[in-house]
């Protein structure tokens, strides 16, 4: 990946905006040839579309208690079946998908922002490198899940009263997942910065008077963008899994917010009578995460300068 910076910069060396755009178009053409990645893109796209517009088309309410139809297997009226309180599982899954995907994407932005900032500072300023990398190594050996659980336990109630139950937990989960998940990004960005800042065009830019901030943001960052895009993709999948894990342990979103992990938590006690309650939301988590991972894999191959066309 670090070798990637050299190859990319050769393409952008001329530096005009139009050529930058054609680099991304070129990347898209390569990406399209990666079959699993395209499959992932289509699957994830349909999933995102389904949870975005699904609830408008499939208007069954998510909290409609009906004790005449509890724990039904899938049927034409209720394609995913119903749960122990007679609520429609398809409606709940679609709604939960919105939260799960929103958490994944937002937590990714938190992780990328922190990771890129720390990586860029460490890679650009030799003085900051030592301390920042010690911090990164320290964070890597953190026991993430126990720490996440501890933070949730301690900060849950105050945030809930400050922002309301759902938004409060959302803010808390997104920021904690992001803050515990930026280390890979920081390392990648640092490595890319270290090799890119040696290149002649950076010296040239500096010699015509570009300041540090301008060098970082305008000149080096666009060249390490490809590594960041790959890392960001993987981070979305990791965040979705982490959120589902927290909800699965019963410590994520409140019970009335049916995220995919929460649905699995509720399904646990009914595995013998109603396995469909676990299988549908679980399968959706799996499809979302594997699609994201395949997309990440495809992007990595796309940006790999050693690839053979």
């Amino acid at each position: 990946m670090t070798a990637g910076a050299g190859g990319d910069s050769a393409a952008i060396d001329a530096g005009t905006l139009r050529e930058q755009r054609s680099l991304w178009r070129e990347a898209w053409r390569t990406f399209q040839r990666h079959r699993p990645a395209m499959f992932g893109l289509v699957a994830l796209g349909s999933l995102a579309l389904a949870v975005a517009v699904g609830p408008f088309i499939y208007t069954e309410p998510i909290n409609n208690l009906d004790f005449t139809r509890t724990v039904r297997p899938p049927s034409p009226a209720h394609p995913f079946g119903t749960d122990e309180l007679g609520r429609d599982l398809l409606a709940r899954t679609l709604y939960g998908g919105r939260i799960s995907i929103a958490v994944g994407v937002t937590a990714m932005f938190v992780a990328i922002t922190v990771g890129v900032t720390i990586g860029a500072l460490a890679g650009f300023f030799p003085r900051a490198d030592g301390p920042l990398m010690r911090l990164t190594e320290l964070m890597i050996s953190m026991p993430t899940l126990p720490l996440l659980l501890l933070v949730l336990l301690l900060f849950r109630d105050p945030l809930r009263s400050a922002f309301g139950p759902t938004i409060g937990i959302f803010v808390l989960i997104v920021s904690v997942i992001g803050l515990l998940n930026w280390m890979t990004v920081a390392r990648l960005v640092r490595a890319a910065f270290l090799s890119t800042k040696q290149l002649d065009y950076v010296t040239a830019a500096r010699s015509i008077g570009a300041g540090n901030l301008r060098l970082i943001v305008r000149h080096i960052l666009p060249n390490v963008m490809s590594s960041i895009v790959v890392a960001a993709t993987i981070a979305v999948g990791a965040a979705i899994i982490t959120e589902s894990t927290l909800s699965f342990l019963g410590l994520g979103f409140p019970p009335d917010e049916p995220t995919w992990g929460r649905l699995l938590f509720d399904a646990q006690n009914l595995l013998d009578s109603a396995p469909h309650l676990a299988l549908f939301p679980g399968a959706l988590i799996f499809i979302a995460v594997i699609s994201i991972n395949y997309i990440g894999d495809g992007l990595r191959d796309t940006f790999d300068p050693r690839r053979v066309d």
Binding site: S244, T245, L264, A267, A278, G282, I285, F286, N293
Partner: peptide, 9 residues
């Protein structure tokens, strides 16, 4: 890509 909790269930 399979979350451990789903494999378990």
């Amino acid at each position: 890509s399979l979350p451990t909790f789903f494999t378990g269930l």
